[in-house]
């Protein structure tokens, strides 16, 4: 499953993202859309690349569901 992750910093096509409280480094090389700090992205498998920018409302819905998955011991 993908965790919509909020960009907290960008440096030369590499971003630090917050994935449900965990900070990770990901490449923005595969994105064609402009992204800025505060935007949400979906990361590809393994988290090395951001693959898509996500609307903040949809990200919030997905994060609420994933939090439920974690709370129910599905992860």
């Amino acid at each position: 499953m993908a965790v919509p992750s909020r960009i907290t910093a960008i440096d030369n096509c590499v971003a630090i993202v917050d994935s449900l409280g965990t900070l990770r480094t990901t490449s923005l090389m595969l994105l064609t859309e402009e992204v800025a700090v505060g935007d949400y992205v979906i990361l590809g498998p393994g988290g090395a690349f951001a693959s898509e920018k996500v609307d903040p409302e949809i990200a919030a819905e997905a994060l609420a569901f994933l939090t439920e998955v974690l709370a129910n011991g599905q992860a």
């Binding site: 499953m1 949809i58 819905e61």
Partner: peptide, 14 residues
């Protein structure tokens, strides 16, 4: 509600 969620829950084949 599910149709809004589904394509964004998976990193591949959304």
């Amino acid at each position: 509600e599910v149709m809004v969620l589904l394509p964004s829950l998976f990193s591949l084949c959304g």
